[in-house]
Write a protein that binds this DNA or RNA. Structure first.
Length: 801
DNA sequence: AATATGCGGATTTTT
DNA sequence: TCCGCATATT
């Protein structure tokens, strides 16, 4: 039976070994039932990628070329022509989001048949499926638990302590990433190279890895890496199982192939030995996850790995303007390790904006200027949902958030800490886990003294010692020790109570609905109460999250089902109901698109990031460049690149030089928006004159007309982006006096200029609107604005009306 | 068991 | 500079 995976989803007949041959009655019936409308409106390359069904196929799909459409249509086509049943298609993605999206889109094409696709999912989901089916073959029980990173690290910490290794010198985090790296490369404890094995923990790397794997088996648990590695081991060591899947999977489709790591690659190689109909879709230029084990090489080598492979390039872009594509293509052309594609578009728009590059004095000004620009776009009718700020590193986000809060611009941060990673959620889940899985030591440990029950470190140590000595889970240890006199006092009472509670909850597993039970557990354990009594600011939010957790459980059939889901699917749909600007990292922007994209922080050291250069040299630089390419290609209409001459890093101000990537952009598609830049005398290689360029450009102020667009823009990017004089005048910022100097310079340049405003004059201000001048003090005006009230502003920020 | 103090580290992140 | 962590202190 184990060799015959059963699948009973949907109403589609489930064949075992035989699928309808092309031309069979079944196939004709399936084909005839559906008109081939899905092939309409595809370009020749897309059609080629969809209709080439036999043998290995690599689809090199550039950004915005309709990759997902090809993938989903291909599946629809396979189904519609009866070449395979839904259950005979293996379709893998990297993220749950991508899997969901694909499912949805296939559903639109073929209807409910998609429900019969049990093998559409992430590598990890499919790994779990394989392992649950054949658990005993890799030394697990089919109800194994899946540990997340947090659990992993706690476990390793224990092992490091047990080995008597200095935790300071050899942090568990580091071991976790080492082991993860090994697993991504397909290496078990026996396979790791001697050098690696010697490296960690005074030469005990291999021992620790072995001990960790043993411990996982005792806990009947796997980590994320195991979902791939153990599944691979399963296929390798059990030819009969492999043969079964060979017969089963008639078509294999892989999304984002450039992101596959070694194990995933080995999986695919192994499985594709069956039907050879493997179709990988990816873009080597968008490979940005090398640092977590992805091998660009997999895609570069495809034709060698899969002999007779056909390669189709999708280069026709449906997303961006020619300027954006031109800039992106020119930039990425600086990479050596690539298969080479050039995006193009037929869309001709003579009014399209060039990619804009702008300079700011420091990161604060950068945020201010971008904030102002966004407000301008909003006034011109742009939807905030179509605007994104894409940063290299998350610390850059804060300044934008601060600015948006000040301006009252709604925004959302994408990425960030996940719902299921929050402390209160993890605590609650630990309670649920221990109830449904008595052997889940990590869960037990987490909740044993949360809320406080007077069970301290000493008691837990003792339980551990007993558990380890007798190879039993902690709950058994507690149970046994309670029979003796070992446990006394408060610890004894508390543990007795806790064990009784767990037992009681466990007995309710079948009697109550899982949501009822969850409520009961949180209530009776005193966990809810703990937060109710907490006076801190976060407490109400945490209680709210717990409610949300219970609410989200309703979508599942059982506690087990729910726990399985969240261990694999740590994401939740962002709330995109309200209009808001998105702020996210470049990494999390992959696959998304926006009309307007802001790309701040293009400075050497930040982007390309110094660490990428230090750690991976040329390869690191190329990956950074791909990241830049991803960033630019997210934009449909406008891409605005920024760099700041000064940035606060780890607290102190550092001056920086513009990113080399800026010099790699083609003149023809770029407009440099910098003070005084519009009329020559300024070469882009001159960016490096950080402070100096600022002063140079200041010098042009006095002589130029105030009404040129260049001047206005320059003025707008000055230190006081909103023109308000009163705030932030050089107050305690380093390098000291920066703001002051700026203020003086603005003041001087304008005093020498023509601008004169009389009391009572009607003026217009970009941010505050119309108003009447109340008083004049040099270049400073006090204006009574119709809407915003009385404000002090610099006269250069207002216009006479 | 709750609070103070000192230390190191500070890209990117999915599953 | 700021944060989280681990250890020290009461």
């Amino acid at each position: 039976m184990q060799n015959h995976p059963t699948s009973s989803h949907g109403q589609v007949p489930q064949p075992d070994e035989t699928a309808p041959r092309p031309g069979s009655i079944a196939a004709r019936a399936l084909g005839a039932a559906r008109p081939v409308a899905y092939l309409d409106n595809l370009n020749p390359e897309q059609k080629d990628a969809i209709l080439t069904l036999d043998g290995p196929l690599l689809v090199l799909a550039g950004a915005g070329t309709g990759k997902t459409r090809v993938l989903t249509t291909r599946i629809a086509h396979i189904l519609a022509t009866g070449r395979a049943y839904p259950s005979q298609i293996l379709a893998v993605t990297f993220t749950n989001k991508a899997a969901r999206e694909m499912k949805e889109r296939i559903g639109k094409l073929v209807g409910s048949a998609v429900e019969g696709m049990p093998w559409l999912g992430t590598f990890h989901t499919i790994g779990v499926k394989l392992l649950r089916r054949h658990a005993e073959m890799v030394g697990l029980r089919s109800d194994f638990t899946i540990l997340d990173t947090d659990d992993q690290i706690r476990l390793m910490k224990q092992l490091i302590q047990a080995e008597g290794i200095d935790e300071k010198r050899w942090p568990a985090r580091q071991l976790a990433s080492l082991i993860d790296g090994w697993k991504n490369k397909g290496l078990g404890p026996k396979d790791i190279p001697e050098g690696d094995a010697r490296y960690f923990g005074n030469g005990r790397g291999r021992e620790l890895y072995t001990a960790y794997q043993d411990r996982l088996k005792v806990l009947n648990a796997v980590d994320f890496g195991d979902l791939l590695l153990e599944a691979l081991r399963l296929l390798r060591e059990h030819p009969d199982v492999l043969a079964d899947y060979h017969r089963r999977f008639r078509y294999i489709l892989v999304d984002e192939y450039q992101d596959t790591n070694v194990v995933q690659y080995m999986w695919l190689r192994l499985l594709a030995q069956g039907s050879k109909n493997i179709c990988c879709v990816g873009d080597d230029d968008q490979s940005i996850y090398g640092w977590r084990g992805a091998e660009v090489d997999n895609i570069l080598r495809f034709e060698k790995d899969f002999p007779g492979a056909k390669v189709v390039r999708l280069e026709r872009n449906y997303r961006s303007t020619a300027h954006i594509l031109g800039a992106a293509s020119h930039l990425i052309a600086h990479n050596e390790a690539r298969l080479g594609k050039t995006l193009f578009t037929d869309a001709v728009d003579p009014d399209a904006d060039k990619v804009r590059v702008a300079a700011a004095w420091d990161s604060e000004e950068e945020a201010r200027a971008i904030g102002d620009e966004i407000e301008r776009l909003q006034r011109h009718g742009s939807n905030l949902n179509e605007i994104a700020i894409l940063v290299r590193a998350s610390f850059q986000m804060r300044e934008f958030e601060d600015r948006f809060v000040t301006l009252g611009v709604p925004y959302r941060v994408i990425g960030g800490p996940r719902f299921y990673e929050r402390q209160e959620i993890r605590d609650a889940l630990a309670y649920f886990r221990i109830v449904s899985q008595p052997a889940d030591d990590l869960a037990f440990e987490r909740i044993v003294n949360t809320p406080r029950r007077g069970i301290g470190g000493a008691t837990v140590q003792m339980l551990h010692a007993y558990g380890r000595a007798n190879s039993v889970p902690l709950t058994d240890a507690v149970h046994n020790l309670l029979q003796t006199e070992e446990l006394r006092g408060k610890a004894r009472t508390s543990l007795t109570g806790l064990m009784a509670s767990i037992e009681r909850w466990r007995n309710q597993l079948d009697a109550l609905s899982h949501t009822e039970l969850a409520k009961m557990i949180l209530d009776e354990s005193g966990y809810t109460e703990m937060w109710q009594n907490d006076r801190s600011a976060e407490a109400p939010g945490r209680l709210e999250n717990l409610k949300e957790l219970i609410r989200s459980m309703q979508d599942f059939e059982s506690m087990t089902g729910f726990l399985e889901h969240i261990s694999l699917v740590m994401d939740r749909d962002a709330d995109d109901s309200a209009e808001a600007v998105s702020i996210m990292t470049l990494h999390s922007a992959k696959g998304l698109e926006f009309e307007t994209v802001f790309l701040p922080g293009w400075e050497e050291g930040l982007f390309p990031h110094q660490r990428a250069l230090d750690e991976s040299g040329r390869a690191g630089l190329e990956e950074e460049r791909r990241l830049a390419y991803v960033g630019v290609t997210r934009a449909k209409k406008r891409a605005n690149i920024w760099f700041a001459s000064n940035r606060r890093i780890h607290g102190s101000w550092q001056s920086s030089i513009p990113s080399r990537f800026l010099d790699e952009l083609p003149e023809a598609h770029v407009e440099v928006v910098e003070q005084g830049s519009s009329y020559g005398g300024y070469s882009r290689s001159n960016y490096g004159a950080y402070g100096a360029s600022r002063f140079d450009s200041q010098a042009t102020f006095g002589g130029s007309s105030y009404n040129t667009p260049g001047w206005k823009r320059a003025a707008k990017t000055q230190a006081f982006g909103d023109g308000s004089w009163s705030q932030g005048t050089g107050s305690g910022r380093t390098p000291s006096g920066v703001k002051m100097i700026e203020g003086e310079l603005i003041a001087r340049s304008v005093v020498g200029g023509e601008a004169k405003y009389d009391v009572g004059a009607r003026v217009f201000h970009l941010k505050f609107g119309n108003g009447v001048v109340f008083s004049v003090d040099g270049n400073k005006l006090t204006v009574d604005f119709d809407k915003a009230g009385r404000k002090k502003v610099v006269d250069s920020f207002v216009e006479k009306i």
